[in-house]
Structures are given as C-alpha cells and as structure tokens.
Design a protein around this nucleic acid. Structure first.
Lengths: 343, 343
DNA sequence: CTGTTAGCGCGTTCAC
DNA sequence: GTGAACGCGCTAACAG
C-alpha cells in the first residue's frame, strides 16, 4: 500500500497524489476529489519514514528524561507534548535511566532519528559537557536547568525566588528559628534554593544556624536521616524547609517516630508539589514547580529553534514557583491575618 | 555527513561502509579498520530514518498510554523499555490524552512511523473495536487488559485473584462485615475484583451486603463520595476494600472528616500500590499490581510478534497481584499469628 | 571480499 | 494543473 497504488487507482501520477496530501491548493478540485476518494477507498496512509527522508524534515522533537515512572518527569513530558501537538510536531521521548551515559546515548539516538530538536532534562551531565553539546547541536534546549553559558537555551525555575518564597511564608507566620534540609550541592537548584531562603531570612533580620543546615539526597530516606541529624543537635527550631517533597516526607516520618507533632511542634514546608504532598498527614505545604508549564515552554523553544519561524525571544524561559498553603505550617503569630486553607 | 562521505574518505564504496556497520564479519579486517577509522574521524552516525526505509525494519515498537504524568502508566512504560532495550529495539511512546479518539490516532500514528509492533494500554476503546484492530494489525498487543477474543495478545493482571487476595487477608484478620468501593462497571477490572472478593468471602461463609457495595470512579474524589454514601447507610462494617489506592485515599479522608479511626474503627485495603499508598497515614495496606513486569512482558510479546524469532508461548501473560501489608488493616483476632509489618 | 546497480516510499524540481 | 525524472541516505542483490 504505497502512494503508487493510490496513483494507479486514481489514474494520476504519484506526484499528484503527493500534492493533494501536502499542497492540495495546487491541484484541480476534480482530480483532488478523485485522489481523496482513492485514498479513502484504499485506506492509504503515508509512510512517515519515507516522507521524512524525502522532505528531510521529520516534524519530530525528542525529549530526554531520567525515567518514565516518576510523575516529576511525566508532568514535563506531558507539557512538551501539549505544546508541540498543535504545531503539528510529534514528541518522542527517551529515558536516560538516570545515568550520564544514558543521557548522551539518548540524545544522540534522538538526533540519529532525525529529530529536528531535542529537549533534555539533564541531571548527570556537567556544565562543561552540556555547553559543548549545546554548541554542537544548535536546536537543543535544556529543560528545568539553567546553564550560564546558554541562558537563551535554558528553560528553568527561579529557585532563588522559590527558596525566598518559603522563607517569607515561614517568617510571615511568626517562625524565627529555622532549619533546612538541602539537596546535594552538586545541584545548582539546591544551592539556589538555599541562597534564596537565607537571603529572605536576612531581610527579616534572621539567620539560619549553620548546624541546622544539613544535606539530603532529595529522596525520602535522605530526608529521614537528615531530620534525625537535625534533631540530634538538640538545637531548637520551629520550622523546617526541605528542598523536595520526598525529603519532607522523610522528615515527617522522623518526627512521627519521635512523637513530634507536625505542625504543632515543628512546621515543615516542602518543594515540588508532587502528588504525595496532598496525601501526607498533615497535608504538606509546599513550593510548587510549574513542571507542565516548563515542559510546554521547552517544547516551544525547541520548536522555535528547529523552525526559526517564530521569534524565540517571546518564549518564557524563567518560571516562578508558587506557594501551596496546606496544613504543615503552624501560625505562631496571633496577629497574622492569613488563614489556613487546607485543600 | 553521509555514508558517501565516509566511503570517499576511506576510499571504498558505500556498500562496504554499510557492511562494516551492519555485518562487519563479511569484510576484510584491513578495510574494516580503514572504514572504522574514517567513521570515527568524521564522527559519522547513520541516519536511522534512511536505514529504516532501505531495510524496511525500524527496530522500533510503539506504546500508547493515557498520559505521561501518572506514575501508573510510567511504570509500565519503563517496563516496556527495559525489556526492549537489550533486544536492540527502541520504544516510542505516545499519549492518548485519555480519549478514545486519541487512542486511535496514536495507534495509527505509531504504525505510520513504521513501528514493527504496538503495545497499547486502552481504557477508552470497546472490546469490539479492539478486536477489529487486533485482527487488522497482527503485531499489536494489549497491556494490562484482557480481551476474550485475543487472550494470546493480552498481557494482564488476574484481577479475580487480586480481589480474592484482599478478601482472604481481611478474613484472616478476623473481619466479617465488609464494604467495597468498586471502579466503574464498564471496566472489566472492577467486575473481576468484585467477583474475586465476593467469591473468597463466600468460601469463608461470608457475604457482602448489597448496600455496602458502591461505585466510584477510581479517583480520590469518587472514593470520598462513595465512602460518605457507605457511612450514611448506618450499616456497620469493620473493613473496606477499595478498587484503587486513590479511592482509598478519598475514603480515608472521609473517615478523617468524621473522626473515624483507621484502622481502629474501619480497616481499609487498597489496590495498585502507587507511591501515595506509602505516604498515607496510616500507611495503606494494598494489593500491588506488578506494573513494571506487565510492561516488560508486553514489550517481549510485541517483539516476539514483530520478529517471530522467539516462541511467543514462553512469555508470561497473566500476572498475579501481591498483598503489601502496611498499617491500614486492624487485627481483630487475637489468635492470629501474623504480625503487622509497616514499612 | 568488494563494487555496481537497484530500489525503499515519498517530495520536489522541471518541462509540458 | 499535471507528469516524468531525480534524489533523500541507506541496504540488498548480484556480479566479479
């Protein structure tokens, strides 16, 4: 079942069939109907591989993510797809299986398949290598990562503001003694969140005790261990900022094991707003990353680079997190006007 | 940068270059090194699109799922990828955006791109249409769905046993008065789970009161409403079986709002074992679907059909759920030997 | 063992 | 407005 069969059936040349598919306005209405009928009758569907080869345009954009299981990546991927679909572009995703080698392989593999651009969420590649790769492949963009050498090809969250948001909310609610569980410091996100948090505290005349800042691995177990460390300092604090919801879940578990009331004795604020945040008890107050929006923007940016058709400047690159106020932060000040609105 | 550039650089024909790439054993060691060097020197990478066209084999298998955001689909997708990768096959996924039209489109689109097989998780298509499609496209398989007309192309969970597992566990722990929140009855899964549950109760000489069986929509909100309905019957029960973890979360929330202790007053057992199950309070006891395994098997089955190289009979098609014992089911019998092992 | 020749299925010039 | 001819980058059949 090829274009040739259609042309024979319709009694026209293959060129004409190709035209009614790609530029119908160029062909006479009568022959157009003839061909359309033939296509419908035969149930013909163009071979996209052949099409891509002949037209050297695949109308496809690749995406590299760590894995498919985590809703974190899934939300971004859905965003990319949502942005590309109306533009007539296909999204094709590949998993790096959380390995730097996997990221390289996936990236090249996508390019080998003639993706016109690739969107990559890189966790494992160093800035230097990413810089080289971006230079070599001019239609690639970074999703949820900021690379100083290529700000115009980075779609990312303002993590400094995210950290500040957490601090401001805690301060507003009367907290003065804080603790923080950071992500690993090889992640710029963790450093930015920590910086934003501290700067905002400073603006309120507060400081974070050095021993009350510990590092976790972004995962639940890391949060649990970090919280244990924090508690064992015996230095009092009323509020804790975690760089991820998962670590917040671990911290919460640590409190539960020690019969520490959350938020009565210790308030906790997370980061990300994954599904689990809504299901924890108490429901977790957290800083929401607009992952879907970031994915959409990354898709648009990649498309803009691939087609050069739209002005890439119009695409939003920096996103701002949003505070989701649930029930894990206590109001310490009676004169505070805000009210708790668990959802 | 094409195969021609490589052949020129190496001073051989393009056919030879093609051979060292695809069947290196057919070419002399010396010329092989020559070509290998040329490839490395030029950084040549074969165009997979052209390759696919010429060899009419894409070594690619498509997957259709509802969306990318939900970890439920992501776990299966990761499974497919895990199975296919060692076989030298690529996975390419497309989202149906939870619409029947989306499922059809995605399916055909994948075929248009010359996928040698497609794995589909269909929620929206009727049995009749699926039967037709499977007949028309002989290399397609169903993932986590049983279709009576094509059992050999269905990779699925034994939901009857899953339901029975829940019942047995509750009975074993001394529960006699049960309630159930089902999925919508257009899902065969819901009917099977309900049947298995009731049959197992019958084996223990118990029955489920008709008014204590209500329907939800698999989602959290549905579970909450269903639980309200159940509670308003004022008919007492000590244990509740929910056809999904999300509905269990809703039911739990309903209890919380009425100050009903879980599991002290009412025990709850869920289905799926999504991430949220571990994060609920109490941690949810649930029936775990081996989604990754199901995805792997679906990938293998699709590959077997596409290549006819391995005997498809060896692939496991029916999977058995597993009980994950956490903390949401109370032990009512003092003579029970099992112990609670929350994780 | 290697090169030459023909396509794969389609898009895209050109003439007409 | 339409068709013939060529080529996309590569693999496969056949000679030699």
């Amino acid at each position: 079942m090829t274009i040739l069969d259609v042309s024979n059936y319709a009694g026209v040349s293959t060129a004409t069939v190709s035209r009614v598919i790609n530029k119908p306005e160029l062909v006479d209405a009568k022959t157009r109907d003839l061909v359309t009928d033939a296509i419908a009758h035969l149930g013909y569907r163009p071979n996209q591989v052949a099409r891509g080869l002949a037209s050297r345009s695949s109308r496809t954009i690749g995406v590299v993510i760590n894995n498919f299981s985590a809703t974190y990546y899934g939300r971004m991927l859905d965003g990319v797809d949502r942005a590309l679909r109306p533009l007539g572009y296909k999204t094709i995703a590949e998993s790096s299986r959380e390995a730097s080698e996997g990221e390289r392989e996936a990236w090249l593999s996508l390019l080998d398949r003639q993706c016109e651009a690739v969107v990559i969420h890189s966790d494992s590649l160093e800035d230097e290598e990413l810089t080289l790769l971006l230079e070599r492949y001019p239609t690639c963009v970074l999703m949820n990562r900021f690379l100083a050498s290529h700000p115009e090809r980075s779609i990312y969250l303002d993590n400094v503001r995210g950290g500040a948001l957490a601090a401001r909310f805690l301060v507003k609610n009367g907290h003065r003694d804080m603790a923080m569980i950071c992500g690993p410091d090889r992640f710029y996100e963790a450093n930015d969140r920590a910086r934003g948090f501290k700067e905002e505290l400073a603006r309120a005349g507060l400081t974070l005790a050095p021993e009350l800042t510990v590092q976790g691995n972004f995962r639940e177990q890391g949060g649990l261990e970090a919280m244990d460390t924090l508690l064992e300092t015996r230095k009092p604090f009323t509020a804790l900022f975690c760089h991820s919801d998962e670590m917040a879940a671990g911290a919460l578990e640590a409190c539960r094991r020690r019969d520490i009331g959350v938020p009565e004795q210790i308030s906790i604020i997370g980061f990300d707003d994954l599904d689990v945040a809504r299901h924890m008890t108490p429901k977790l107050t957290t800083i929401r990353q607009p992952l879907g929006d970031i994915g959409e923007a990354a898709g648009l940016a990649a498309h803009a680079l691939a087609t050069k058709t739209e002005s890439a400047d119009l695409i939003q690159r920096v996103f701002v997190a949003e505070l989701v106020d649930r029930a894990s932060v206590a109001r310490l000040r009676s004169n505070d006007t805000s009210t708790s609105q668990p959802d």
